[in-house]
Amino acid sequence: MKFRYAIVVIGLLLPVISCKEEPIPKPKAQMRLEYPAGKLATLETENFIFQYNQFANVESQDSKAITLTYPDMKGAIFLNYKKIDNNLGKLINDAKRLSYEHAVKADNIVEQPYVNPDEKIYGALFEVQGNAASQSQFFVTDSTEHFLTGAVYFATKPNYDSILPAAAYLQNDIRRIIESIKWKD
């Protein structure tokens, strides 16, 4: 009887004594999203030329409204061109206002100025962090004739954690557009 009692006690105490660390559940797996590097193509309008990622489909309503769609990401970069007619201050204020309208849903908006005096390109890129409708917006100008704005939108509910890889990819494409733009006279 004592032998059975000892086996039961050892059987009950062994699991308690042998485990020194708390078991930690495995985290849920996250899907790793990778997008192709993309080859560059040149898009020319009557007012400007720029390089874009060939991964995008170009949809143009006219030379003033261009959409670069990324079907695999369900995203797009919308570009809108305007001639400056003694209204540069208003155009810049409107571009900034549109960017900061996302502040209601955004956690943070980072404004990155861009200046390239050799090519007469001045502007800013706005990185919107958080669950806002647009993750990136920008404007560029030569400050005398040309003004171009752009914005990234996704055809999905804005969930910053989920769209972050795609938003970062499109933000790099926006930087490529800004850095390669050349104005036509």
Rank of each mutant, 00 (worst) to 15 (best):
I178F: 01
E44P: 05
E119T: 07
P25R: 07
P71V: 00
N87K: 04
Y114A: 00
Q171E: 11
F126K: 05
P36W: 08
K82Y: 09
P23M: 15
T144R: 10
T149H: 12
R175P: 08
A167H: 07
I174H: 04
L91E: 15
L88G: 07
M1H: 15
S63G: 14
F48H: 04
E127V: 07
L13K: 05
Y81T: 01
K120C: 02
A151N: 08
A151P: 02
I77D: 03
V152W: 08
L79F: 06
A124M: 07
I17F: 12
F48P: 01
E111P: 00
K64A: 14
D142I: 07
Q61L: 12
G11L: 13
I178S: 02
E101P: 00
C19M: 13
A65W: 03
F138D: 00
Q30R: 14
E101D: 03
S60M: 13
M1C: 13
A6E: 02
K82L: 08
I66H: 12
V152S: 01
I178E: 04
S162F: 12
Y169A: 03
F147S: 03
F78P: 05
L43F: 11
Q51F: 14
G89L: 07
L33W: 09
D173T: 08
N80L: 12
D72K: 13
I66P: 11
Y81N: 02
T67F: 02
N131D: 11
I181G: 07
S162R: 13
T69R: 06
L12S: 09
G11R: 05
A166K: 12
K39P: 04
G150T: 06
I10P: 05
I92M: 03
D72I: 06
V16D: 01
G130A: 09
Y5C: 05
K184C: 06
T69Y: 06
E46R: 05
I178T: 02
K90Y: 14
L79D: 11
R175I: 05
E34N: 14
E101N: 05
A95E: 13
K26R: 09
T156W: 09
S143V: 06
I17N: 01
T42K: 06
H146I: 03
D118V: 06
N131W: 07
P23H: 12
P15C: 09
Q51D: 15
K184W: 14
I17L: 13
Q135V: 04
P27R: 09
S162L: 12
K120R: 09
F138M: 00
L68C: 03
K28P: 04
E46C: 09
N80G: 11
Y160T: 02
L79S: 04
